[in-house]
Design a protein around this nucleic acid. Structure first.
Lengths: 156, 156
DNA sequence: TCTTGACTTGAAGTGTGCTTTAAGTTGTAG
DNA sequence: CTACAACTTAAAGCACACTTCAAGTCAAGA
């Protein structure tokens, strides 16, 4: 079973022009063409596209994804490089996860803050509340919001 | 203690022009000026800036952040709106967390894949390995990568 | 008072990731 | 054979979040 760009786009939930753009950027060198120049996606190309999708979700740039694709097409000589790439990506995701958890804490705190304000009719109540009266799980983030940010220790 | 734009920028780990840009976009209406027009950040402005930072981390646009700031300056009438905003944002973060976890699974699988390839000297080994020989925790994601994506159920 | 570094603004420039447009080609159904 | 939807390309356009530039102003120390 082969697919045109439009069919594959529908299948993946993206637009056809996105796939054409990826192709132009060198992300789809594995896609074959008909004698007339029409792209013919194979069933087996889906795995490539899924991996590209995941890498995008991981925040990788088009350029970096292309580098990976190029390596993969070069064959077994680049296995170690590709492994290193994914190991690095795992670290990046770990960091993103931490940031997200921290952000979630802030949002949870703000939800509590405005729920409390709503009950009282004014933000003055949560705003000026004694730390001791603030639910224990929000105390740390409240203190943090009111002081300086953790300087992001630039460790590459 | 008051700070100039450069001092505050240093404190927050951003550039001064970023803060000026935020100001221009209406994110910092609370910042006062000297008679000569120099921005004078107050100690108490730090909380605003921290919240702005968190909202950006949560993926909110400058426009949406401005709407929040505007509401906050309007006073207690907008408490319910602001609460709704953060509740919505919590949902968004939950989704992001799920996507991130899924991406992490893929990256873990790819790490295993290339570690296995490295040991064998060829990607053929992990690529053609029987599902039964693939470590149990990677089986699901492997199957998923090789078939169609979950159609993202558009639920707002 | 003068110098100097940091501040001010508006406007233009940058990088990323698409999206749209225009002009033309392909391939299938009738 | 024709019609027509879907494909092709190059190039321009867009949204976003800054960043840089140019020209000028402010304010603290010598």
């Amino acid at each position: 079973m082969v697919y045109t760009v439009g069919e594959m786009a529908k299948l993946l939930g993206v637009t056809a022009s996105t796939l054409r753009y990826y192709d132009k950027e060198g992300l789809l060198p594995f896609v074959e063409r008909s004698s007339g120049g029409i792209r013919m996606f194979q069933e087996s190309d889906i795995e490539w596209l899924q991996v590209i999708g995941c890498m995008k979700k991981a925040g990788m740039s088009i350029k970096d994804i292309r580098r990976y694709i190029e390596m993969a097409l070069q064959g077994d000589d680049t296995i170690t490089l590709r492994l290193a790439m994914f190991q690095r990506q795992r670290q990046v995701l770990q960091q993103q996860l931490e940031v997200l958890r921290h952000t979630m804490e802030m949002v949870d705190y703000k939800c509590w803050y405005y729920e409390t304000a709503q009950k009282a009719g004014t933000v003055a109540v949560p705003q000026e509340m004694d730390l001791a009266q603030v639910p224990e799980r929000f105390r740390r983030i409240r203190q943090e919001l009111r002081s300086m940010p953790e300087q992001p220790t630039e460790q590459d």
